[in-house]
Design a protein around this nucleic acid. Structure first.
Lengths: 322, 322
DNA sequence: TTGTAAGCGTTATCAA
DNA sequence: TTGATAACGCTTACAA
């Protein structure tokens, strides 16, 4: 409709409403401190001019940008996509923008991103990769980012660094839940197929393994497929960490004409879409994403948040119809 | 290592190098116009102070941010994830940051994002959804964004709006290629399962349908599954637009104990990971993403680019072993 | 080749 | 409850 080719500034609004810039600024930032009368006049003027504050000027003055960085292991993978979606949605609810950084699972790249982030104009960063990233170089880069005033949130407890928030998830509960279901259905020798045993998540998953055989397979489709080829024949059920790994396992099993009950520790739309659909024992990415943003928001405005613990839930589907 | 808790400003550098701010600024922006001697002195000072220009101040002054917005239909879907990955990588190569906006396939949301984007501090935006978005309201919002100086790139020709760049893809070639392969292998009655017939891409796909029966199914897993249930029994092969749709089709077929050769018009890692792996006839998302950024970069620095046309390629896998 | 000085649009401090 | 005014850190005429 109306289209001012050049965008209106706070001064334009002030003039139109017959007040000072200060008042306009107040209407935007602390509406309570302004009389209802002027409030309305200013709001009308702003609306009429289609005014929106210039984010640079605001950032320059306040040191805050309303933008956070999301560092993700590999956005082409279903889980990370769902997570990014959740983060973006939750961030938007709080008026935060999200800058996307894909790490391609590389620690070196993570470090270089961390190094330049403080100058990119973001208020904070979310490190959403599950990879084991606790190298000295990365820890140092994170500490630096913190020192430069950036808020840091991770998806899992990662560094010894003070002052970074992380999502608390009962990861061990996922395999435990899955194995329980399998046992109840009569499985005798379940195997737990892990990406890694020693990463921040892997360590926790091992705790939920119980009697099950633990196999470390790497996080990729093909590594998981290889691991399944080497699986001894007496195993009669599988719990697998990620969807790509589970697909690799399925594919390897199909190749040798075998079929096993499978439960996956990752809940994404895709899980329900493959054939057979995967049963899952997992925390939905929406929850994790939402929690990350909640922690970030708290860090940003110095609020206290009570710790919240995320628990995996079981969803039964065809791959293991319990 | 070194960590100045507060970051150094241009003035700090100037003082340390014994020059004026102007000179420091010049060293950064037009190094040629400064004597080799001062150049070095300033650079040393900048290095010593670990100086990096404040992006707000710079943006406020110059109006440019080095950040582009990526608007994507649904980042939780494999194709969009791969595309985002490609865009992020290509953007980074050119020193551009990427802000992520997930549209959830909603036109209303697209419009609201477009409306506020001009004030979010981005230089341009890439609209990467394949949905039909040519409503009057959206077109108006896009025109507005253009008028406010934003560069606009779309994944497919979308609006009548002047001055927006778009990726040229021979979409019709994908079904054509697929149907050709199927015919060569003896398929008599192939069906082409489309998300929509009248959207910007759907229209093109129809052109490549040839003799095949065209079925409009909607873009989701379940809609595609429904469509397949209604498929008449004489059809003996399927060409499907997207992976989620193909999974829906597979699932519906499996449910009635049928199996058909399938070729999908979307090439993502997942295609190779499902069982049976999908043969595809498609332009890899990396190419599309790269091209989008190429167009964006050209728009941003006013360069001319020769139009480049993307062509689908065929990749044979288990779902149709040709 | 270098420096002076005037903004860019906003918010924060003070005073009215 | 409001307003004048001074920053924030940088770029860019215009001068020297």
């Amino acid at each position: 409709m109306s289209k001012p080719s050049e965008s209106a500034t706070i001064l334009d609004v002030a003039r139109r409403a017959g007040v000072s810039r200060t008042t306009v600024s107040r209407v935007l930032n602390e509406p309570d401190r302004v009389s209802p009368d002027t409030l309305k006049r200013v709001q009308d003027a702003a609306e009429a001019l289609n005014y929106a504050p210039n984010s640079f000027a605001r950032g320059l003055r306040s040191g805050r940008t309303g933008v956070i960085a999301l560092l993700v292991g590999d956005i082409s993978q279903p889980f990370h996509g769902s997570l990014a979606q959740a983060v973006a949605a939750a961030a938007e609810e709080r008026g935060l923008g999200v800058m996307l950084y894909d790490l391609g699972h590389s620690t070196a790249r993570l470090e270089s991103v961390l190094r330049k982030l403080p100058r990119q104009g973001v208020d904070g960063l979310i490190i959403a990769t599950a990879d084991d990233i606790s190298t000295a170089a990365v820890a140092d880069a994170v500490a630096d980012a913190r020192a430069q005033g950036l808020a840091v949130v991770t998806g899992v407890e990662q560094f010894g660094v003070e002052g970074i928030a992380f999502v608390r998830t009962e990861h061990a509960e996922a395999p435990r839940l899955a194995l329980e279901k399998l046992a109840a259905a009569g499985a005798q020798r379940p195997a737990l197929l892990l990406g890694d045993k020693h990463g921040p998540i892997g360590r926790q998953l091992v705790l939920g393994a119980g009697e099950a055989t633990v196999i470390e397979a790497g996080y990729s489709f093909s590594r998981a497929a290889d691991a399944v080829h080497a699986l001894s024949p007496e195993h009669d059920a599988l719990v697998v960490t990620t969807i790509p790994m589970a697909l690799g396992a399925m594919s390897a099993l199909a190749a040798i004409g075998r079929q096993l009950p499978i439960i996956v520790c990752e809940e994404v739309p895709l899980a329900a879409h493959v054939t057979p659909a995967f049963s899952t024992a997992a925390v939905p990415p929406e929850e994790t994403g939402r929690e990350m943003v909640r922690l970030m928001a708290a860090l940003l405005d110095g609020t206290q948040v009570e710790p919240r613990v995320l628990r995996p839930v079981y969803t039964g589907r065809e791959s293991f119809p319990s």
